[in-house]
Design a protein around this nucleic acid. Sequence first.
DNA 1: CGCCTTTGACCCGCGC
DNA 2: GCGCGGGTCAAAGGCG
Length: 185
Amino acid sequence: MENYTSFLRLPSPTTSANSSISLSINGNSHSLSDFEGIKGNGFLGLMTGEEMNADTGLKEHKNPDQGKSFAGSAQYEVLKFSKKKGEKKVRKTRYAFQTRSHVDILDDGYRWRKYGQKAVKNNKFPRSYYRCTHQGCDVKKQVQRLTKDEAVVVTTYEGMHSHPIEKSTDNFENILSQMQIYPAF
DNA sequence: CGCCTTTGACCCGCGC
DNA sequence: GCGCGGGTCAAAGGCG
């Protein structure tokens, strides 16, 4: 997605447990409308089969035993400079989702290999780092639970899968795979 | 046996 | 320069 003119930063994940992340995308044609559409219809439509029951009013849905429920999402771009000298900046798009779940591992249909875990400041829960194991696919995700609301799991995806989903599950990542509207970098 | 997790070390950017 | 915080590496071990 080269055309984004603005990007949304999550509230600093180490200092804020704000559970209502606003979504502000003003990219090209499909950013906002499609994203919202999928979120409002596709996401929830399919999530209901899995006890998904929250949209933006996540705070009122405080029921960890319900399993997973979609809580919120955000997208933002990350500007990075390559470590190598003389390389241009690498732009990555990250999608952050908040999910109410009593389990950290949200099986989203892709195969992930954990490659790290770090303690996060001001957060008593560690953050886990996963990488997609599909060859040539360097999609990463971070999973982190909030101190202020232990029922909330924040999953941050970085990059996009350039391959089909590997398991036929009907959870939200399956839908994510269908909303690959942006070209891979 | 292959794939995965665990875990400390390492690296890097940034602020002081 | 140094320390801190975040991100990654890689060796070692676990498990099906």
